[in-house]
Design a binder for these strands. Sequence first.
DNA 1: CGTATAATTGAGGCGAGTCAAATGCCGTGG
DNA 2: CCACGGCATTTGACTCGCCTCAATTATACG
Lengths: 254, 254
Amino acid sequence: MTASTAVSGPKTALSADRPTYRQACGACSGCTVRRMAVCAALADDEVAEMERVMSSFTLEPNQALVEEGDPKRRVFTLTSGMLRLSLMLPDGRRQITGFLMPGDYLGLSDDEVYSQTAEAVMPSVLCGFATADMDKLMERYGRLKDRLHLMTRRALRQARESQMILGRLAPSEKVASFLLVMSARAAEHGQPESPVHLPMTRTDIADFLGLTVETVSRTFTKLKTQGLIRLPDPHSVEIVDKRLLAAVAGNVAY
Amino acid sequence: MTASTAVSGPKTALSADRPTYRQACGACSGCTVRRMAVCAALADDEVAEMERVMSSFTLEPNQALVEEGDPKRRVFTLTSGMLRLSLMLPDGRRQITGFLMPGDYLGLSDDEVYSQTAEAVMPSVLCGFATADMDKLMERYGRLKDRLHLMTRRALRQARESQMILGRLAPSEKVASFLLVMSARAAEHGQPESPVHLPMTRTDIADFLGLTVETVSRTFTKLKTQGLIRLPDPHSVEIVDKRLLAAVAGNVAY
DNA sequence: CGTATAATTGAGGCGAGTCAAATGCCGTGG
DNA sequence: CCACGGCATTTGACTCGCCTCAATTATACG
């Protein structure tokens, strides 16, 4: 049953061997995700206060930031790079529940402990906050709390779309809708729609879509052969015919 | 590709032909879900105020309460019965994203419009609130808002577990974990763990687990043959060997 | 009692998974 | 600069299990 290869020996960023950088910045006001992240709920002077309790974290590819079951001592906003969120079965099977992109928040679903593992897909930078500090900020600034709630609702809707994709779409439909979603998300970040950059591996995509690596690879090849996409390199996908690709995706709205 | 039969002609409870009952109660303080629902965040006198803007709704089996895309004018707490939440593809394929049980809240994932359809699985009763009223109550009672956020986070964790089940479990594992979850949920409601009552159809279960009716039915039969469960009737499942059933389920924690 | 719907069971095909191998890519070190 | 090794990706051959189609049995309801 689709036992996926686990990522080789990820280390936690919060353990002793990994440095935690504290930025002396003032960078928040000019942050690239200032308008997308939680902090969009706050005015510049309010963000300055938030910044005082903020720590910066950097991750190398495949490095784990938090692990399922760890006590939730911090929450994060991703500022650059990409993270994968995943759940594991005792026998090693893995389900990736989502990919975090700049502006996304880590900790939405968690209460006392992290409910899933978060690892870097590519070199990544995050803003970290002690949960106690964040709680204080939320008490002080109600809009911050509201925005977090809004983001949680959005994440829930995404998870439900994911349920549909996992439960009811055929492999080509899964891959096609994945490409369209990634394309749309890239656009939201001011990047081009068409040559979509996919920093994650085929295995990651497979573990996200409930498929095997081989099936994902074969499906890419099939879409290429059909002329719907081009593959300049394995991590770049050019969408040739968006309309047709959407048709293949089964018109899954997002 | 697994095209599921749609439920026959569901009508919306909010449309003209369906009566909306306004209870003259005072029943909240003695409500069966008083300690599980949103209202658990409020004291009895505060709930009394909530009650003043509350309307009661009853649903017959297969009747729709809200439909995907409808403007979200009301939110609900289910007090008795069971609802199914679902998403549909243009071609009729359906994914059930979850089942609502007494105490559960309808509207967690929605913003301006309902993101999914909610239909009654069995005769059901709900407390309804105009979104404007609920917003006012949340502004007044912060704990209400917090509890709603808590319930949203919980729903998100459930959806993620669902992603794992849909994407990575084999049919028998899916059915086994479904039975265990339903059993655990029944226990939370003070009902016996073992003869689990499943009011939904096999088709509903199939559309929830990403399978076909036939596969669900065959899997039930297999589990019965293996002596893990008994089936006094199609809607009652007696768990004979919980330990073994959990082993079949792949030890999916919930 | 008769009908409609749900659930089960059966037979068979196809497609995704499994196993295995080849190719491509990239960083390391000679 | 090139040789090597590890890893990701792709491709191939084959099997098995889930879906499809179809029929039968059971259940609920008038």
